[in-house]
Amino acid sequence: MTVVQLYARDVGTGTPLVLLHAFPLSSAMWLAQREGLAKRFRVVTPDLRGFGGSVLGSDDPSVDAMADDVARMFRTLGIARAVVGGISMGGYVAMALCRRHPDVVLGLVLCATRASGDDPQTSATRLRQADRLERDGDVSVLVDEVLPNLVGPTTMRQRALVYGRVRGLVQATPPAAAAWAQRAMAGREEAFDTLRGLKVPALVMVGAEDVLASEDDARAMAEALPNAELTIVPRAGHLVPVEQPDLFNQAVAEFAAALSRASG
């Protein structure tokens, strides 16, 4: 096992809010959250292994390894418990964290993600893309096949700068990290049992225009969780915090503030 120390941006004070990024991006996607939420919370946004400023290490691909990295980061930063938010791949890591290190989770935010495992077709697509990433040594397969589904049609029509920024983040992804992460996600287990056993409140969010994680996926997670609220975010595709940052920040701030009051 490689001990990977995650690079993380750490801003603000108050109840810790740890945000785990989507594939194939980095913690740079959380810019509007660091700016908008750090006045009230300690906002920690790590780069998952291989992405951004974090090294990949030599472990076999596994979402569990990514969750263990995050738990190690908690100890390194002196964080006992935090509200943990994950979007897309970050949601898979957040659910694995809840299963493997439940004591560090004060509350859970799941955005644009799924508790089910991959169906055979999705898994095969991930493995094919991983092979191409390794063979080509560039991320053109992600720009061609993944990028078009990351933002919704409203963003494409009305917010060209946002789409351009997302495209830049995808193009900056290290191919080896993207291949490793695709293999990790293809091999992950379903997480409904973890959600049913969760002892802390949860907030489930999904964009109304998301084609990668559906409203049905979000409802299934909210129904499995003992204590969850569901928010459908209008005019957003898969990257809700980037496409509708104000709506995302408001929902997360209200959720985290209620938790801090309850735990304080």
Rank of each mutant, 00 (worst) to 15 (best):
P226C: 05
M66W: 08
E145D: 09
A208S: 15
D217H: 15
T45N: 04
L203G: 05
V70L: 09
L230I: 03
L19W: 14
R81G: 00
E145I: 04
G91D: 12
R183W: 11
F248K: 03
A8Y: 08
A258E: 15
G85S: 14
F248Q: 06
R159V: 03
R235F: 06
D144M: 11
V170C: 06
F255N: 02
L133F: 09
R49T: 02
A202W: 02
S88H: 12
K39L: 13
C111N: 13
V233L: 07
V11K: 10
V4Q: 06
Q121G: 03
Q158R: 15
Y92D: 08
R9K: 06
S263D: 15
G187N: 08
R99S: 14
G85D: 00
A184Q: 07
Q33S: 08
A228H: 06
D216I: 10
D210T: 08
G107M: 08
L31N: 07
A186G: 09
A38P: 00
Q5N: 14
L259G: 03
Q121D: 11
G78K: 12
V93G: 08
A213K: 04
L97D: 08
L17S: 05
T194L: 02
G152A: 09
A202G: 15
V170I: 02
C111A: 09
G187D: 07
G90E: 05
G85N: 04
L20Q: 08
K199I: 00
D131W: 07
A94G: 10
N249E: 10
S26V: 12
G164W: 00
G237K: 08
G207D: 00
Y163L: 11
D138W: 06
D131V: 09
R81D: 02
S58Y: 11
M29A: 01
R126P: 01
R159T: 02
V166Q: 10
E229G: 11
S26E: 09
T231S: 13
A256W: 04
E215D: 10
C98I: 05
A184L: 11
E134V: 15
S116C: 06
G52W: 07
A112S: 15
V109D: 00
L133Y: 10
L147G: 06
D216C: 01
P226I: 04
V141S: 01
P234I: 05
V3R: 14
T173L: 01
V4Y: 10
A228N: 05
T154Q: 01
F41I: 06
V3F: 12
A96N: 10
